[in-house]
């Protein structure tokens, strides 16, 4: 192996946490080598879904965990506390579990982290919990030395009981693809503030708990929602690729139908970052049976977090695993981001 390849293969790079193919490969190669050694009934790590589902009598116990490491911890539209609650509530919701039984919260702080900042984060976690009708039922706090960690890391986990689990692999040919709102808001807001771009914009993160919105979609027509995923890291593009791949269908997306805020579009054009690659923290992608698609969109739009919900695409039997973008001018493959999105050079 060459020196260059060795340097790439021997160490963890940022792309391994970016939500794309590199991360999925790493999980498969390192964590899933004996994923099936203890058999159980349900959805486990090999599914690489938003969480796990364990059979419990006639119901499913859905469980999920996530660590939050965002820089900066306070960003336009939210902070790491709101993100940590919304992220875990949403991972549960994406499996059809819209009523969290309880959440856990473990905080690791860097020596010197301002106490006022921690209090603000705690207040915002409480507010997010109220919005999601969830509560943190246990937690843990650790402090590490200065420089051993970048400010603050929060881990949350959540559990919920449901009668029916929704996965990210249930798309069938003919299903419509629905998004619950505008795309790219969180990623562009954080990127603009992280990189000191000096843009005078009103970019705001969309971070929000989606469980009540998802409930509205699930309840409007029984069995209409065939698959769900929240397009977080890797953005809408990664979510669609994963859903197409796992479901064994092709997807054609109508670019003009994707709701994107004008300011997000402008910032993304300026930076050369595709809004479909930018993270969302308050949106869901749904596969919906064609006959029910309009009704589900109408139900989503009646919810304050779903006002911009739209049908953006269709699933095909042909070309399984392939996502095609119809640009209105022509057609191309929808590309998946590799690593952290970087702005172009000229």
């Amino acid at each position: 192996m060459s020196g260059s390849a060795m340097a790439r293969d021997g160490r963890i790079a940022l792309k391994h946490g970016a939500g794309g193919r590199a991360m999925r490969d790493l999980i498969r190669q390192v964590f899933l080598t004996d994923a099936d050694s203890v058999p159980f009934e349900g959805i486990g790590p090999a599914a690489m879904d938003d969480g796990a589902a364990l059979k419990l009598g006639d119901r499913w116990l859905v469980i999920t965990t996530d660590s939050y490491v965002i820089q900066p911890p306070f960003f336009p539209g939210g902070d790491i506390g709101r993100l940590a609650i919304a992220g875990t509530v949403n991972d549960l919701a994406m499996m059809g579990a819209t009523e969290p039984l309880g959440l856990t919260c473990a905080v690791v702080l860097e020596e010197g982290f301002p106490r006022r900042g921690l209090e603000r984060i705690q207040e915002s976690m409480r507010a997010a919990c109220r919005q999601a009708a969830a509560s943190v039922v246990t937690g843990d706090t650790k402090v590490m030395g200065r420089g051993e960690l970048d400010g603050i890391v929060i881990n949350t986990a959540g559990v919920a009981l449901v009668r029916q689990v929704v996965t990210d692999r249930g798309l069938k040919p003919g299903d419509r693809i629905v998004v619950t709102g505008t795309i790219g808001d969180h990623g562009l807001a954080v990127m603009a503030c992280r990189h000191d771009l000096g843009l005078e914009t009103q970019l705001l993160s969309d971070v929000a708990p989606l469980n009540s919105l998802v409930r509205a979609a699930l309840e409007c027509t029984p069995d209409a929602v065939t698959a769900m995923k929240d397009p977080t890291r890797g953005g809408l593009a990664s979510a669609l690729h994963e859903m197409a791949d796992k479901s064994g269908v092709g997807i054609v997306i109508d670019q003009a139908a994707i709701p994107i805020r004008q300011e997000v579009r402008a910032a993304s054009e300026l930076l050369g970052i595709d809004p479909l690659h930018a993270a969302n923290e308050g949106k869901a992608v749904l596969g919906v049976r064609a006959a029910a698609a309009e009704a589900v969109v109408a139900a989503l739009r009646r919810h304050p977090l779903g006002a911009d919900a739209a049908i953006i695409g269709t699933c095909l039997a042909e070309r399984p695993g392939i996502v095609i973008l119809d640009t209105g001018f022509g057609r191309r493959l929808l590309n998946e981001p590799e690593g952290e999105p970087l702005p172009r050079i000229c």
Binding site: S2, G3, S4, A7, R8, R11, A13, H195, L197, L271, L342, P343, R344, I345
Partner: peptide, 27 residues
């Protein structure tokens, strides 16, 4: 950004960064 990953004859700037060199992306 893109210049980080272009291979030199032995390694790229990204490799050098992973090994501890100080390399940053600017816009």
């Amino acid at each position: 950004g893109d210049m980080l990953r272009v291979a030199g004859s032995a390694k790229s700037l990204a490799d050098a960064k992973a090994e501890g060199a100080s390399v940053d992306v600017v816009y």
